[in-house]
């Protein structure tokens, strides 16, 4: 009888210890993520039709934001094709989502250059570009990275390396989620629908 009591106490202690340990590893991690990812989309750029746009033009709608450059043969058209598939998959709810393609290559991506690029994906994507300084500020605001990489045979002699996540901002322009490059459209669509339902 006494042995059973001791056993019970030991089991209770073990359970309490594992719970405490679980809480310990979960707690700071969770806190950190929340602090790091709480930010609002901010930009003042020119769209592919030559009109000045800020995040205020899109608030009230969800924003799907991708950074890239139109001379990018692989990652950018692949992601924009996925975005187009997501927009198709949304059906009538697509009106509540604004897909944005922000160029990190303002030198080559003039509004005119974007005008012959983004409409071809047929998903109502808005192409945004600006001066080198505007793009720099936008990049800092979104915590993204980009750099020029020498490539003799490419137009202008360079290509770009860049953050390739697809970002989601909620209708009040607050960061909601991001997907790593290569996430299939079906998965993005399911996540996005869930977020929209919970809003």
């Amino acid at each position: 009888m006494r042995l059973r009591t001791i056993q019970l106490i030991l089991w209770a202690l073990a359970l309490a210890a594992s719970l405490a340990y679980g809480l310990l590893i979960w707690w700071p991690e969770n806190q950190k993520t929340t602090a790091e990812t709480q930010f609002t989309a901010r930009f003042e750029l020119t769209d592919h039709q030559g009109i000045t746009r800020t995040q205020a033009d899109f608030t009230g709608r969800w924003m799907l934001v991708f950074f890239g450059f139109s001379n990018c043969p692989d990652v950018c058209p692949t992601t924009l094709a996925e975005v187009a598939a997501v927009m198709d998959g949304l059906g009538p709810d697509a009106a509540e989502v604004a897909p944005l393609f922000i160029s990190i290559d303002p030198e080559r991506d003039t509004p005119e250059a974007l005008a012959e690029y983004v409409p071809l994906f047929g998903a109502g994507i808005t192409g945004l570009t600006g001066t080198t300084q505007q793009i720099e500020q936008t990049g800092q605001g979104f915590h993204i990275f980009y750099e020029k990489i020498e490539e003799a045979a490419a137009p202008g002699g360079y290509t770009m390396g860049h953050s390739s996540q697809l970002f989601l901002f909620d209708p009040s322009a607050v960061y909601a989620k991001s997907w790593q490059y290569g996430t299939p459209a079906e998965e993005i669509l399911a996540d996005l629908k869930e977020q929209m339902e919970q809003w």
């Binding site: 692989d74 990652v75 990275f145 750099e147 990489i149 490539e151 290509t159 770009m160 390396g161 860049h162 953050s163 390739s164 996540q165 991001s178 790593q180 490059y181 290569g182």
Partner: peptide
């Protein structure tokens, strides 16, 4: 094309 842990893609 490779994408690193920070989500930066380059060729």
């Amino acid at each position: 094309t490779s994408t690193n842990a920070e989500g930066i893609s380059s060729m």
